[in-house]
């Protein structure tokens, strides 16, 4: 494959990704920081999370391809603001959830949500 063809192919792939990530999962968070926060808070104790070492918990659902989930916890629309709230304080949305309210800042929650939306 020539260099030109390679660049063309890469551009095609990148633009395709771009268009699929526009709506509705737009979030102001840092994916890399989100990944670090997930490691630090050890979310992997309960969840399978691609890209997080040792994250193979079965207590909660797998978060693989999270971006494609239509519902959060099978119940709430998977929208950025809803996800941010759920990550930080799940019981305030779902009183019967097993997921505790975890101490973190708004920014950390946004970063985590951004990371989850990077999982396709």
């Amino acid at each position: 494959m020539s260099l030109r063809a390679l660049i063309a192919a890469a551009t095609l792939v990148l633009t395709a990704r771009q268009s699929s990530s526009d709506v509705p999962h737009r979030i102001t968070g840092d994916v890399q920081r989100g990944q670090q926060t997930i490691v630090r808070l050890e979310c992997g104790v309960c969840h399978v999370i691609p890209g997080i070492p040792g994250a193979r918990g079965r207590v909660g659902p797998s978060l693989a391809a999270y971006r494609r989930n239509v519902y959060i916890a099978g119940r709430y629309p998977n929208l950025p603001e809803v996800l941010v709230r759920f990550v930080r304080d799940a019981p305030s949305l779902a009183p019967d959830t097993a997921m505790p309210s975890i101490a973190m800042s708004e920014r950390e929650a946004r970063d985590i949500a951004a990371y989850l939306y990077s999982l396709e």
Partner: peptide, 10 residues
């Protein structure tokens, strides 16, 4: 609290 819950259940 998160790791505690995860440890108890898993």
């Amino acid at each position: 609290v998160g790791t505690m819950a995860g440890w108890i259940a898993g």
